[in-house]
Design a protein around this nucleic acid. Structure first.
Lengths: 113, 113
DNA sequence: ATAAAATACTATGACAGACAAAGTAATTAT
DNA sequence: ATAATTACTTTGTCTGTCATAGTATTTTAT
């Protein structure tokens, strides 16, 4: 195990991960990026560009809203806040994911043909 | 839950699913397709074309080899057999997958920031 | 016997999410 | 003063999946 996670194994989860982080607190883009890096010990090396396209997608779907932070103390920071729709979407994604895991386990671990 | 699995949540797993099926017995393309449909009660509606591109990929990587079945009883059937390399790859994929699940659970279910 | 459906395989083009690479600009550390 | 880090963004490429379509044989229904 070389400590890298293939993008394809997590494809489709990026939005859910972002929503999950925003459930707790608003956060700005780079903060979310760093948070994921930290919490996975750098094993999931997703790229900033991937996150930014996720933000754009989630905004378009009205799952998050963006606002500029107070620029007086430090550089510009674009914060994101989860919306009610985003909360619903998050729950749905988690449910879909758990369902998918069951199906996948059925495919990968069953004995009979 | 409307009974459909989004392609993106299983993207990257197709090859592993195919290898997993071939672990037990050789099988021909359409048989593998039907097997997946049956074993998931049609909930995972992956397309034949997706499987055929998986076969092509796996052949190219020497994880499977193809041979034509006995055409005397019925139409042409292209069988696939898993290779030693394919078996190794399968185990690696499963390990990667379990590892990825841990990381994903860490991202989606942890409390602290 | 004939038509319809299922079996079985294949090719082509489009789509979308992730990535690579690069860039801008401010702040902080050396 | 310089380098490193923070912070955000854009453009083009890659790849797995899907939509669509097609060919041909075999089985089932009428």
């Amino acid at each position: 195990m070389e400590g890298r996670i293939s993008a394809d194994l997590l494809r489709g989860h990026t939005d859910t991960i972002v929503l999950g982080i925003l459930l707790k607190n608003d956060a700005y883009g780079y903060q979310i990026y760093k948070s994921i890096m930290d919490r996975t010990d750098g094993l999931y090396q997703l790229k900033e560009a991937t996150l930014y396209s996720s933000y754009k997608r989630l905004e378009k779907e009205a799952c998050i809203v963006a606002y500029w932070g107070d620029e007086s103390q430090g550089g510009r920071r674009k914060y994101y806040r989860i919306t009610d729709k985003g909360r619903v979407q998050y729950k749905q994604n988690i449910a879909d994911w758990e369902f998918t895991q069951r199906i996948l386990n059925r495919l990968l671990k069953e004995e009979d043909d």
